[in-house]
Design a protein around this nucleic acid. Sequence first.
DNA 1: ATGAAAGCGCTAACAA
DNA 2: TTGTTAGCGCTTTCAT
Lengths: 335, 335
Amino acid sequence: MSRPTIRDVAALAGVSHQTVSRVINESEQVRPQTRARVSEAIAQLSYQPSAVAQSMAKGRTGMLACIAPNLLDFTFSSIIEGAQTAAREQGYFLLAASAPDEESFHQLVEELLTSGRTEGLMVIDPYVAELSRNVPSEYPIVFAGGGAHLNQPLVNTVVLDDETAALMATRHLLELGHTQIAMVTGPRLEVCTQKRILGFERALHGRQLPIRPEWMVEGDWSAEAGYSAGMALLGGGERPTAVFVQNDQMAVGLFQAARAHGLDLPTQLSVIGIDDIPLAAYFCPPLTTMRQDFQRIGREAIRLLARTVADPTTPSEQVRLPVTLVARGSTAVKN
Amino acid sequence: MSRPTIRDVAALAGVSHQTVSRVINESEQVRPQTRARVSEAIAQLSYQPSAVAQSMAKGRTGMLACIAPNLLDFTFSSIIEGAQTAAREQGYFLLAASAPDEESFHQLVEELLTSGRTEGLMVIDPYVAELSRNVPSEYPIVFAGGGAHLNQPLVNTVVLDDETAALMATRHLLELGHTQIAMVTGPRLEVCTQKRILGFERALHGRQLPIRPEWMVEGDWSAEAGYSAGMALLGGGERPTAVFVQNDQMAVGLFQAARAHGLDLPTQLSVIGIDDIPLAAYFCPPLTTMRQDFQRIGREAIRLLARTVADPTTPSEQVRLPVTLVARGSTAVKN
DNA sequence: ATGAAAGCGCTAACAA
DNA sequence: TTGTTAGCGCTTTCAT
């Protein structure tokens, strides 16, 4: 007693299976009366076409894949959520996979694209630049988020406008009267980090302020790293009055370090982050940050991808999305 | 110049396509010498079997699906991450979909299961009890997380041991000397909430303490709801000295409310949550909570699902996972 | 150990 | 407007 096939429906409706196919595919070429009979047969048998057989015959699977280092991190999962929504709107399903290391990444790409299981691939990876080299270029692909700043205009990318984000964040501190501004960066290897450093430096240069290397501490985006950075930054001799932290998690870690040093936030130290993670408003003090629309990154990425799948000759596009300042309680006028 | 097929390989290797198939499927019945020739032809053409054609012929797609209200929420995304990892280990791909409302949920179930696109379904949904009624029971399915407490032993479920978790959390407060304990619950409709209420009540009854209805406030798991609940709870006449909040997000919201009332945490108010969200240690004070292993929920769920897919006659199983107390700074001895 | 034939469930191209 | 004929690329069954 397995599933009914198109032929069962045809037999019941007294037509050829091809007519049933036409009804399924909403072809106009079917007489309403015939269509009705077929529809009824379909309903009666609760017939549902086999997606696999359709894929086989049409040469299209209706699936896109998404690879991220993990599905856990808020930045990744929100990009994926946006992507998933957009994919469904475009009639695609999204296969989500996590590949923590380069080996599993390549294995996945092989299994997904080469096997024809999915029609396109969205890659969320901070170290994308290296990885992308090895991805067969004939496959529809889009790089999104973090490190997707490829300089080659041959691939679809969707990224944050990191440089501007950092510029704006730093300017916010400058406008509050701060001149002694430190920075906690992400891993230097990531293009995203580099762009944010650039924006920071541009902002300082705009005011003829010096860049002090000892006030640039590298982190790995984690709250723990932010804490360590804070301990290093605030423990030394001269102390900055404000810190631009390249993401919210590290900013929160830095809060902890500031408290450990008995500093009052924001009166003795202003802190600004990037991301606007969900609970940013619930830290103490509430975190001032640059809001990033992660879901939109996912949506845009799928838009580019679907377009490329539909027509592989579509020229690739590089999207850069803006951020907005969300001023909360962790930044204040320098006193 | 499209992808090579099994016949191209066969032609190049000078064998029948069937022999190639045997090599692909690692059948023992191939002479090593022949196998070598075929393997070389495969490598030479960079041949990769079509997953769709394999699915068609084998009647198996090698895909599982996962539906959650969204992919964003940390509780969901971490379950999915665990599920994805387990799925890959078992040779499956995981299709992740979000269905915010019941309509899209059913549409998804139809499109995924009935179409034969996926072999099994994992549902993460707080309102699962109602939804499950409408899911055709002949499909391999597992309910995970939040509301998956079905009383019918006919389905696979993986849930937190909510009652014990609440019992332990409340006992922690009792052991600190608190007797005036309030609770902020999740939506009453969710079984998960109900179980946690049960555990709370059992703990109080164990000490002959009364349950005070005015000290039970309902929330929707969000930080905002926790804040509102806190305002209601702490603004009135008699004030509890401790609050058991049914999840961490609401607990953090309650922190905010306590601060608004000028209460010092934890000296004037102890707060305990459930979940141990990633930044729980970075709130002020660091949040005491019951840690839940979300990824394990996902892994267990996929284990059950894969088992049922492999043999649909496998009796279903109900897994309940334990929590552990993570004592941080938000709870203290009553003074 | 290998090959030939049939068919998985559907769609596309052609014929009527 | 409908039906017939071929596949899609692979596996399974049965011969050899």
